[in-house]
Design a protein around this nucleic acid. Structure first.
Lengths: 130, 130
DNA sequence: TTGACATATTCCCATATAGGCATGTAATGT
DNA sequence: ACATTACATGCCTATATGGGAATATGTCAA
């Protein structure tokens, strides 16, 4: 099998850097295709195709205004990505403090300033262990 | 041109669902390939290939233990993803409140209006505050 | 050394790209 | 109706993919 379609989900859609740029550019307010073209320096058909992908996965909203099409980022659709990455936030915090803790010593029982990490159960992650 | 390589960055690497599952599975503690295979129900070569991609983009660390290879998620490498998605957090919040604000009327003239954007450049988006 | 175990790599292939270019289509102005 | 503007879509191609099967590499144990 080949790679999953870019339109299969937000993860695949935003893997393309140009599409991320587009999303950034139209996050604040809707913009016509022409402005995106000018701003990113891509060919118009390219932009239209990227927008098509973004639309298919719900990452943008469109609205017609005369002959122009106004696109705007649908931030909600980025949320799943945010949430997935967020799951790892505590880990890099943990890893960071570990590195900083390079005090040779094994950490003393008196814990100084570690965010509490123990709330989470291992099960949250390996839900599908055999 | 074809799609960017899966090994070109973390965005492309995590576009594949199986790779995200792997990252989840080995986020807490390092695990040998065999356990990942059992846990995800994939063929061993598949898992090895996915791990290769993850390694190439620095999303996992490896360590040899006898004949086994112990892999572990390098959460740090997920951070850029988190940060990119985070940029949009305020937007979905806005959008949410907007929806709740269903006050029909266009917003009153004196309010938190947005700065002038009409003539900004390509990567203008970043310098906004909430 | 030989064999068993654990993991990695290679080969093959159907599939989906992204870009360039040409063309199609919708809305507007005259 | 016609020309023009603003997008969208179709066609083409080189390229990378992920899965399966087979094989290679590496490590330990007897």
């Amino acid at each position: 099998m080949a790679r999953a379609a870019t339109t299969s989900d937000a993860f695949n859609a935003v893997a393309e850097p140009r599409r991320r740029e587009i999303l950034n550019f139209i996050a604040l307010e809707e913009r016509p295709v022409g402005e995106i073209v000018d701003s990113l320096g891509l060919e118009q058909p390219s932009v239209s195709k990227h927008l098509r992908v973004l639309r298919d996965v719900g990452l943008v909203h469109v609205r017609r205004d005369g002959r122009r099409m106004l696109y705007r980022t649908n931030a909600e659709a980025i949320r799943p990505l945010h949430e997935w990455t967020e799951t790892f936030e505590r880990y890099w915090r943990h890893q960071l403090s570990r590195v900083k803790e390079r005090a040779e010593r094994k950490s003393s029982p008196s814990n100084d300033s570690q965010p509490d990490f123990s709330r989470r159960r291992k099960d949250d992650f390996d839900s599908n262990k055999n």
